[in-house]
Design a binder for these strands. Structure first.
Length: 497
RNA sequence: GGCCCGGUGGUCUAGCGGUUAGGACGCCGCUCUUUCAAGGCGGAUAUCGCGGGUUCGAAUCCCGUCCGGGCUACCA
């Protein structure tokens, strides 16, 4: 039987990295086995639905490179189409499920009483588990809104297998009777997801660890319907630095926030895949292809993992450095052109980066690529290029006062700048790197300097306004004759008398 | 409270009865170099949560214990 998996988020917010990792594992597993991925929107709770969420889900998937072949299916639509009705009928008829008519207030009071008596809270029968058909008919006739509950058998051990943790056994008496159909007629997750998994031929269910506790109920449901449950694969949670489940207060956790912050989807995917999964060897930087080839359920960790932003930065740097400059340039331009990114950076207080995006977006391809080529080794997030490229793209770079203070006071600098300006200005065309280096070395000899540093450093400051950055000769070649002349003149003018 | 799951350096992990407990991030040196990165080399950091067993031998198997997490909705 071929593998069929599903990513089934509920549209209650933009997916965070934990959700997306689940999607990624589905995808890797399916690719590994040449299976099929379905996208299913679990929107059975209309109260919690967030408009526009489905688009964010789809965008997030695209960002990290997860593809799906079937869907999106929406449970609200399936419910309206009557997909679940036959199974409701069958469950009621067999007695595996029953109607209950307590009000939410009554249930709340019941739970309160239970916890006051230190009993397990939950619906273990109430007034309706054993009610006669007459009572049910009467309640319905009176128009009371009721729910349908699954009848959990008593005094049984419910056993099931989790593919990463092994056998799990639970005493059925600790399980309460879950609601299958809500008073508004919509199915709950417990019902819709199981029915859909079966109907859609899902073979493996990858879901969060938080579902382990209700898995026995799902097993009971499958059994009641006479169906074989899929393989259950419960994924460990991703935690924040403080050890609690990753959430908003740990900073940006929405998948798309990472895109806005300038992370490559490939890097994020690679990084989150490695929280909770390992290929079994020492490989870490892996493409989606490599990961899907290596993906095994046995490589999934049962224990939770902490999201380490510093390691993500490293991973991102690996991708930025190894990308062909042309491809990187397209990514940077695309990033810089997206208006919401500058809004995002601004909101993060990265004003300079936000501001510089427009400059990048406005650049012509060759020039942008040249600047990015200079800085590819030195930047990690795409947003970093914004600040780093600026001195090379702007008419006149901002001068760092401590840089000029350090070098412009040296006695040989005036002569150095004048001589260089003269040689550059005399050029018929833009120089290449070799000419720049030869010229610098010649200047060193002429000025009688025993090291190249005193030549290189002041020129760098004159040309870029700072002491840090790319190699001087390549930077000179990138700037070209005319820009060098202008900047040298400006530096000459600002030299202390 | 009850039930369930987990526990290898600060973090992500390899390990699946016999290893000097391996790798990566981060950190600290050194090196390369015109600066900064990147790269190369080296280093510190783990009594494998703890206590008992089983075994010639345990991070690996068993029991207990502690700690952490999850669930305990007409949410998913």
């Amino acid at each position: 039987m071929s593998v069929r998996v599903r990513y089934a988020p509920s549209p209650t917010g933009s997916p965070h990295v934990g959700n997306i990792r689940t999607a990624l594992y589905n995808s890797l597993f399916a690719r590994r086995h040449r299976g099929t991925v379905l996208l299913r929107i679990e929107d059975t709770d209309r109260a919690r639905a967030v408009p526009g969420c489905e688009e964010e889900i789809i965008e997030s998937l695209a960002y990290v490179g997860v593809e799906w072949q079937e869907g999106p299916f929406r449970q609200s639509e399936r419910s309206a189409q009557g997909v679940y009705q036959p199974y409701i009928d069958s469950l009621v008829e067999s007695g595996s499920a029953y109607f209950a008519f307590e009000t939410p207030e009554e249930l709340a009071a019941m739970r309160e009483e239970q916890s006051r008596l230190k009993l397990a809270t939950g619906y273990f029968g109430g007034a309706w588990r054993d009610a006669g058909p007459g009572d049910v008919e009467r309640a319905r006739a009176e128009g009371q809104p009721g729910v349908l509950r699954l009848r959990i058998p008593r005094d049984e051990t419910i056993a099931f297998q989790d593919a990463v943790r092994g056998d799990i056994e639970v005493d059925s008496n600790v399980l309460d009777d879950p609601v299958l159909i809500k008073a508004d007629g919509m199915p709950t997750y417990h019902f819709a997801a199981m029915v859909d998994d079966h109907l859609m031929g899902i073979t493996h269910v990858f879901r969060g660890e938080e579902w382990i506790a209700s898995a026995p109920k799902h097993i009971v449901l499958f059994r009641a319907l006479g169906w074989e449950p899929p393989v259950l694969v419960h994924l460990p949670v991703i935690k924040g630095k403080d050890g609690s489940k990753l959430s908003k207060r740990h900073g940006d956790t929405a998948c798309l926030d990472f895109r806005r912050a300038g992370f490559l989807g490939e890097a994020l995917a690679n990084f989150i895949a490695l929280i909770g999964w390992s290929p079994g060897d020492d490989r870490e930087v892996m493409s989606l292809d490599e990961m899907s080839e290596a993906f095994e359920i046995r490589g999934i960790q049962p224990s939770s993992g902490v999201f380490d932003p510093e390691k993500l930065d490293w991973m991102q740097g690996e991708y930025v450095r190894s990308l062909p400059t042309g491809a990187l340039t397209r990514k940077v331009r695309e990033y810089a052109s997206e208006l919401e990114n500058s809004d995002f950076l601004r909101a993060k207080g990265e004003e300079a980066a936000a501001e510089g995006l427009a400059l990048l977006a406005a650049q012509d391809e060759a020039r942008l690529m040249g600047a990015i080529g200079l800085l590819q080794q030195r930047c990690t997030r795409l947003s970093d290029f914004s600040v780093a490229c600026k001195p090379f793209l702007v008419d006149q770079p901002a001068m760092d006062p401590s840089a000029t203070a350090k070098w412009f006071g040296e006695p040989h600098v005036r002569e150095l700048f004048r001589a260089l300006r003269e040689k550059v200005a005399a050029l018929p065309d833009d120089p290449d790197e070799a000419w720049c280096e030869a010229t610098a070395r010649a200047l060193q000899a002429t000025l009688g300097l025993d090291k190249l540093g005193p030549v290189v450093h002041p020129i760098r400051v004159a040309l870029t306004g700072t002491t840090i950055g790319p190699g001087l000769f390549e930077l000179m070649a990138f700037l070209g004759r005319d820009r060098m002349v202008v900047r040298l003149d400006s530096a000459l003018g600002s030299l202390p008398a």
